[in-house]
Amino acid sequence: MDPRITVVTLGVSNLDESIRFYRDGLDLPLRDREPDSDIAFFTLEGTWLALYPRDLLAEDATVLDEASSGFSGVTIAHNVSTKAAVEEVLMEAKAAGGQIVKPAQEVFWGGYSGYFADPDGHLWEVAYPQLTDD
């Protein structure tokens, strides 16, 4: 796995309020987005910060029972350049003692991703954000 983090996603309870906090309060640069979009991205130096409703983030990671799973509402994303690389990184994490939480699969936003948990339960998404056809 390359030593880089692409996106840190915070599961938030009120997306509009959180956007105001990060954009207006902390002056983070908000990327263009559709007004009714349920995700917001802020471009930072070397990575992005994403805000996404907490319940939808838990659903995407297949954490069905947030209370008993220890889900903290935070995921870390590592983007790769191919679907095969998603599979490779997930297997690398598993071999190192991680747990596959969501096997790699086609996802609703058009890419391909899966999740693993590190030994402390921190969730990592490994994603191929397909921008063009393979």
Score class of each variant (00 low, 15 high):
residue 28 L to R: 01
residue 19 I to C: 10
residue 49 L to D: 07
residue 113 S to N: 14
residue 116 F to E: 03
residue 128 Y to D: 15
residue 57 L to T: 02
residue 60 D to F: 04
residue 95 A to Y: 00
residue 30 L to T: 13
residue 30 L to F: 12
residue 132 T to Y: 08
residue 38 D to L: 13
residue 88 E to R: 11
residue 40 A to T: 07
residue 92 E to D: 09
residue 18 S to N: 12
residue 86 V to I: 11
residue 126 V to G: 08
residue 77 A to H: 04
residue 72 S to L: 03
residue 82 T to F: 13
residue 127 A to G: 12
residue 82 T to R: 14
residue 39 I to P: 02
residue 56 L to N: 10
residue 76 I to P: 11
residue 112 Y to H: 14
residue 120 D to W: 04
residue 88 E to S: 15
residue 113 S to A: 15
residue 19 I to Y: 09
residue 78 H to C: 13
residue 109 W to E: 14
residue 132 T to P: 05
residue 41 F to S: 08
residue 40 A to S: 14
residue 92 E to N: 01
residue 107 V to Y: 05
residue 77 A to K: 01
residue 18 S to P: 10
residue 34 E to G: 12
residue 44 L to S: 06
residue 68 S to Q: 05
residue 119 P to H: 04
residue 13 S to A: 11
residue 133 D to K: 06
residue 78 H to N: 14
residue 112 Y to Q: 09
residue 9 T to I: 05
residue 62 T to F: 08
residue 56 L to D: 13
residue 98 G to M: 01
residue 60 D to L: 08
residue 65 D to G: 00
residue 109 W to I: 13
residue 70 G to K: 04
residue 110 G to A: 14
residue 52 Y to N: 11
residue 96 A to D: 07
residue 61 A to W: 00
residue 117 A to M: 05
residue 131 L to K: 14
residue 41 F to Y: 14
residue 22 Y to L: 13
residue 48 W to Y: 10
residue 52 Y to R: 05
residue 69 S to H: 03
residue 96 A to S: 13
residue 114 G to P: 03
residue 83 K to R: 15
residue 5 I to Y: 07
residue 8 V to T: 15
residue 76 I to G: 09
residue 93 A to R: 00
residue 111 G to D: 12
residue 24 D to P: 01
residue 57 L to R: 05
residue 80 V to I: 11
residue 8 V to E: 07
residue 72 S to V: 02
residue 14 N to Y: 02
residue 75 T to G: 01
residue 89 V to P: 00
residue 64 L to Q: 07
residue 82 T to I: 13
residue 97 G to R: 04
residue 6 T to P: 11
residue 32 D to R: 04
residue 13 S to H: 07
residue 66 E to S: 05
residue 88 E to H: 11
residue 111 G to F: 13
residue 51 L to M: 12
residue 84 A to I: 10
residue 83 K to T: 13
residue 105 Q to F: 02
residue 1 M to N: 01
residue 11 G to Q: 12
residue 123 L to C: 05
residue 131 L to P: 03
residue 32 D to G: 05
residue 29 P to D: 11
residue 20 R to A: 15
residue 17 E to K: 15
residue 103 P to E: 12
residue 126 V to W: 06
